[in-house]
Design a binder for these strands. Structure first.
Lengths: 248, 248
DNA sequence: GGTCTGTGTGTCATTTTTACACTTTCAAAT
DNA sequence: ATTTGAAAGTGTAAAAATGACACACAGACC
């Protein structure tokens, strides 16, 4: 009696997405609100995620789920890893919630987590499906989330920390035009430590992957900053010749 | 109609293990032979792996499966990630093989891969269960494996490369007492590039995590080398004070 | 005693890192 | 018009890390 593989939900495997945004001040994370009013906020909030279909790969599933829940699409996702503790679904509120949305709410689920970096301005989330709301929350203000999502978030932050030491992915979080101070703040937010301003600027300039736009910030109540943009071509050129030290 | 979670195999989730060993010359990988004589060797070989039980976490499952198939136990496993392409089971030989060992051979399976480093001398594998044989194979001689195991192996090697630049995990691959040349060769095998001998030795010595044993190699047809051992206490001490630059 | 083979060692030039403080420019308030 | 506040922008010197490079030594074996 062998089951044919069809496009049906797999009750045992889900995907979750940690989407980072940067509001030019601090790191934010996209969370959905499950909207059960009687619950405290921290247990209502969850990472966008859901079960996968049997005919899609993990990354596709993550894209789909993310778009279904938050309307975000066309963003690059990178895998963090699998989270599969048998009692990752132990909180009562989580169990109750699953009862309301899953066909097999008691099934053992392992989840594969992904993360991404987006420009917050480009991706204003709109909640849909079982997400009653979708919103950016400052990463440092999150103290708990549904299921094991808080652990996943921490793993994502660590992964991001490691990755940004090697690749200049931070630019994905910034608007097209940005100042060196904004970039500086971004690195400090991600690495969670202070970086000397002059040393940081020297290092960035040595990388030689920024184009100075000869435009200045406007409307700021202080000396306006030069604007820069990320130079993708230059970056390709450099990395193709085997350079990979973008460390901070 | 809700299913009770019991200790049964989950048909949709498996674990696979990439176990690295070092024979003082080159990097080896532990593979099992599925032993179907009519098949070419490269498709007979696979990473040790199998479905998980619903009541165990992913790491426990990996330990259990590894021990069941190869008799190796008590080793530290680190997750590589999840591999879940819907057609990762596309080769005819693999499908046929699954028919013979699985209750639901056509089920969609996503696998979570782990890797580990062991001292080859301590872990002479003995095949069991559906593994007809378990053996160390030089990593560079492997050109193909069952399922997507070759991809998993490559991912493991990359992970190892990244990790060894940050943590001195290489010592797990060496015998208790080892020479600097052996350590040197190990790093060259993993990083897949030559390292200058004197610079390498200088760097290791600056790390200050080796204890010189004041013993020499015996029975070698050349000047015998000094023997060293890894100094765990020193390492703890250093890392606890927030030092993390073990890069090569 | 000679040969073979891997061991073990030092220096110098260059690059990278770290620590550190003051002047400039604009907007807003007076 | 002047002052004030707030972030932008800039240089240097000392210390540390890196990279390139060549030859004498010790033991095994013949």
């Amino acid at each position: 009696m062998q089951k044919k593989i069809v496009s049906e939900l797999n009750p045992n495997v889900s995907v979750d997405c940690v989407i980072f945004g940067f509001d030019l001040e601090k790191l934010n994370v996209l969370v959905i609100d499950r909207g059960e009013n009687q619950l405290a906020e921290n247990v209502r909030l969850a990472l966008p995620g859901n079960l996968i279909y049997n005919n899609e790969n993990l990354e596709q599933a993550a894209y789909r789920v993310l778009e279904e829940l938050t309307s975000l699409k066309d963003i690059y996702l990178e895998q963090i890893g699998a989270f599969g503790d048998p009692n990752r679904i132990c909180k009562e509120a989580d169990r109750a919630w699953l009862q309301s949305i899953r066909a097999e709410p008691e099934a053992r689920v392992i989840t594969v987590a992904f993360f991404s970096l987006v420009k917050m301005e480009d991706y204003m989330p709109h909640a849909a499906s079982f997400a009653k709301n979708a919103a950016w929350i400052p990463a440092n203000e999150i103290t708990d989330l549904a299921f094991d999502h808080y652990d996943i978030l921490q793993a994502a932050r660590n992964k991001l920390k490691e990755k940004i030491k090697i690749q200049p992915i931070g630019f994905n979080l910034l608007p097209e035009k940005f100042t060196l101070s904004q970039l500086h703040k971004l690195y400090e937010s991600i690495l969670d430590k202070e970086l000397d301003k002059r040393n940081f600027r020297r290092k960035v300039q040595k990388l030689d992957i920024l184009t100075q736009l000869n435009e200045k910030q406007e409307g700021v109540p202080h000396k306006p900053s030069e604007l820069y943009k990320f130079n993708e071509e230059k970056y390709q050129e450099i990395t193709q010749n085997g350079y990979d030290n973008f460390g901070f």
